[in-house]
Design a protein around this nucleic acid. Structure first.
Lengths: 341, 341
DNA sequence: GCGGAGAGTGGAAGCGCTTCCAGTTCGGCC
DNA sequence: GGCCGAACTGGAAGCGCTTCCACTCTCCGC
């Protein structure tokens, strides 16, 4: 079925050529002690001459460590991964992994088959550790927390339970920042578009928002789910306009959602920010490019990836890193400027 | 260093429990023939009871097939991967891989260290095959074509040489489409912003554009490199405005570049599309969200990923798939509408 | 001058699975 | 009733590397 894999030189051949035992050769390529200078050099020469590269599979079998970690993204939306959010996470993860010798296995688990593979991979120890970004309320999480006997770092908290290791953004705090900004700039009829109710991040953002408003004594007129997508945001905005009297501010659970909302507002002849101010969440590139550019809650996405990787590496090294909450901050652009309307 | 990996049941234990030889057990889990119905069932029961999952590392060592493919993105721009372009490619690749039992190893090779790892991975057969998106003119490519004795599928043609397997978009054709659109809508003073001169895609786009103009007898006023980035596009546009008399159309090598150009045009008080029409390339989400929304050359990015994966799988199965050029098409939006200025 | 601590060394036993091979069984057919 | 081939079966030899262990050597301190 596959082209006959050409044989690479083995450690035995290196050892023979260098005139040492295989054990010694192994010690040399692993930089282990107990090898005389002379033999070490002989082995190194043989390695060079033969172009020897240790076979990672064999090493993995012998050491019981595969030298790879799994980044799994679990979601329902097919192709949600295409959201630049994840690309950015991957960049962060890669940056950290690059300095280790761990490889990155990527699994997009948004189908039953994908989730099945995820389980297999975890149970068969195809990776030494797992980073899991789960965007649904249930699923592999439960199994993992219990079954997996390898370290699992969560990116974003799962809906239920608090795992041992996780990195999350301060979603609640971000929601409050949005509320405070609206209050500060004189908005008094705010509404919100949330994500799926089973996504903890979405819930936290909305809670923070509600909390911030409550503290200022401003009522929250209405909330509609927007599914984190542009179309979802547009439809949610549609419903909000229909069911609530003239909101003057909307907080969306993501930039994409906010952009959808902008579209609907425009369609209804409402001016942003004059009639309605809009705040998004994430601060990805699209927030800068929308018209008007989006005021949004920035979350450090790349750092999220970095910290997840760092945490996993720490766990693999036997330390017990503490969970991390990354700060969010308000980025003011035109969709919700500093001044009052 | 690592938490003692808890032992999973082995095939031997399964065999013993089922009262058969290890060979027989192996045949069962691999769905191979020559096992009596009775034994087959006994083994299956044992597998279930023990919760046995075959150890992929051991299988890999024995079969000399790792069951994973590598997707490597080589580039100079750090974090270029964050471009949604790649996320989209990854989605396509994943979709295809999901139906196989190949895993996806992702490597962002934009540092010397990353490239080193790439080479190691290829030479040590850490993967059965490679998909390579190389965005620079040189680098691992040369080595690969020659050294790698595993299948390599290129995403986008490398600057020199024509590999055995590749998938590319019809960049040249896309460039022509842009030219034709400008000509058709009465633009007579076009300029272009290209990508790095060592990126074949960038060159092809520009060539196609020049070609299209030439066929219509319209001169190309000027060309400036924009490095595929927004800032690069902005600066290139700045230079173009400085050095050429009032261009009325600009073709940018990517959407990001085009958006940069829009920024500069606005700064100079030029109206898009009234004074200057702009066409981008790629048709990612940002093209829809820019203001004005970007007329652009669409390329089927996800399909690119899918086809790369399909091609690699084909090669791994011993077939010899033919290279593929995916079509591009013009998407008209406001930055270069259908009517004349 | 002697006992030891330690570095060096290679043999051998795995790591968990696949697969070749030499036998066994067994049903069917003449 | 005997013979043949196809379908089973399990032993054993790997796949390529790590690591435990039992030894042998050195060299130092007393």
């Amino acid at each position: 079925m596959q082209p006959p894999p050409k044989r690479m030189p083995t450690l035995d051949e290196v050892a023979e050529r260098a005139g040492v035992s295989r054990s010694a050769a192994s010690r040399v390529i692993n930089n282990a002690p107990h090898v005389s200078r002379a033999k070490r050099e002989a082995v190194q020469r043989a390695v060079r001459e033969l172009g020897f590269v240790p076979n990672p599979t064999a090493q993995a079998l012998a050491t019981r460590r595969v030298g790879a970690v799994l980044l799994a993204v679990s979601s329902d939306e097919p192709g949600l991964f295409a959201d630049p959010f994840f690309a950015e996470v991957v960049v962060g993860v890669s940056e950290v992994l690059e300095s280790t010798d761990l490889e990155l296995i990527l699994l997009l688990a948004n189908t039953p088959r994908g989730r099945e593979r995820f389980e297999r991979m975890v149970r068969s120890r195809r990776a030494d550790g797992v980073m899991l970004m789960a965007l649904r309320g249930d699923d592999p999480l439960a199994r993992l927390g219990a079954q997996a006997d390898l370290p699992v770092v969560f990116g974003g908290l799962p809906l239920v339970g608090e795992p041992r290791w996780y990195v999350d953004a301060d979603n609640r705090g971000g929601g409050r920042l949005a509320a405070e900004h609206f209050v500060r700039t004189g908005r008094r009829r705010p509404v919100a578009i949330t994500g799926q109710p089973d996504a903890r991040a979405a819930v936290a953002r909305e809670q923070g928002f509600a909390e911030g408003l409550a503290l200022a004594g401003v009522p929250l007129l209405g909330v509609e789910p927007g599914h984190f997508t542009e179309d979802g945001g547009a439809e949610a905005m549609e419903r909000l306009l229909r069911e609530h009297r003239e909101p003057d501010a909307v907080f969306a659970a993501s930039d994409a959602t906010a952009i959808g909302a902008l579209r609907t507002l425009r369609r209804h002849g409402l001016k942003v920010p004059e009639d309605v101010a809009v705040i998004g969440f994430n601060d990805l590139a699209s927030a800068r490019h929308s018209s008007p550019p989006l005021t949004t809650i920035h979350q450090p996405v790349r750092a999220l990836g970095q910290e997840m990787a760092r945490m996993l590496v720490g766990a693999l090294e036997g330390r017990d890193p503490s969970p991390l909450i990354l700060p969010t901050r308000l980025v003011v652009r035109e969709s919700a400027p500093d001044g009052s309307p």
